[in-house]
Amino acid sequence: MSLELVCPAGTPSALRAAVEAGAHSVYCGFRDETNARNFPGLNFSPDELVEGVRFAHAHGTKVLVAINTFAKAGAMDAWKAALANAEKAGADAVILADLAVLDHAATHHPNLRLHLSVQAAAATPEAIAFYADTFGVKRIVMPRVLSVEEIAKLNAAINVETEAFVFGGLCPMTEGRCSLSSYATGKSPNLTGVCSPPEHVAYTEDKNGTATRLNGFTIDRFGAGEQAGYPTLCKGRFVAGGKTFYLFEDPVSLNAASLIAALAKAGVTALKIEGRQRGKGYVAEVVRTFRAAVEAIDAGGTEVEVGRLLSGLVEGGRQTSGAYKKTWR
């Protein structure tokens, strides 16, 4: 069976771009704290989702709705509404992380297909079996801590589908287990669906160049002409043990394109592209390229051919294959 390409849709226009570029599935979220990409100006209203699903289905593309934050105590209504609206819109699956949301979905929306978000950080056969047996979860988005060899072993030990990130932003921390952002700003992926929120980002020019600060903490500093990254806390430059460097992660993005065939062999069902905050031009280009690569692999294409197809994406920024190769650790 061919690999399913799961593509980001931060806005309705990005959804259309991804669908037209050949996405097998798109994933998106509602414009509120129920999804882990709660950035200003992004995401879908319930009506936009209805329209988006209609458009995607007309093109044979599935829509997966991320409702993957942890519900706020005493205020679960937004998460319940998100589940109901996703089902009403005809979503093909919802991507969930919180035990309470999973429990509610399994009980009240038995026909909704459930995927487990990377935010749930389920990395062992025992944990995955728990989610599958308890809530009927059909697919796991795998934490970005496993190597390809470990993914192969994991797939042999579980009976649900797995989805692996292959391109885009890379969290060096285990997702769903990180409170760095709330330590600095009070807001975090688990609490409010944002990491290093833009309202706490400030750029200050001084004689040493430009400092990027997150709620007063200096995350990095650039000289004129040096390329800056979005000031995500874990991608910053810090001083530790007498060294000044990118302690947690270099300003790189994930590109596991060269490992697509290996991931397929390891039993992965779907490949996920990160980037709901990226523009439609970027999304279309990445999706088109990955679609061609997946088809080349299906047709028995060589690594060289696949590599050539993807070479355009490697231009520019620096990239890593992340935890898929053990040396990353």
Binding site: F70, A71, K72, A73, G74, M76, A97, D98, L99, A100, V101, D103, H104, A120, A121, A122, T124, E126, A127, A129, F130, Y131, G176, R177, N190, L191
Partner: peptide, 28 residues
């Protein structure tokens, strides 16, 4: 981590701060 949950389920156990309990539904 929930890896341990199937093993402890049914007898008394404690939940540590690394498990995501953000609301009464998860706690329940």
């Amino acid at each position: 981590d929930l890896t341990a949950l199937p093993t402890v389920a049914g007898k008394p156990f404690l939940v540590g701060p690394f498990v995501n309990v953000y609301n009464e539904g998860a706690a329940r």
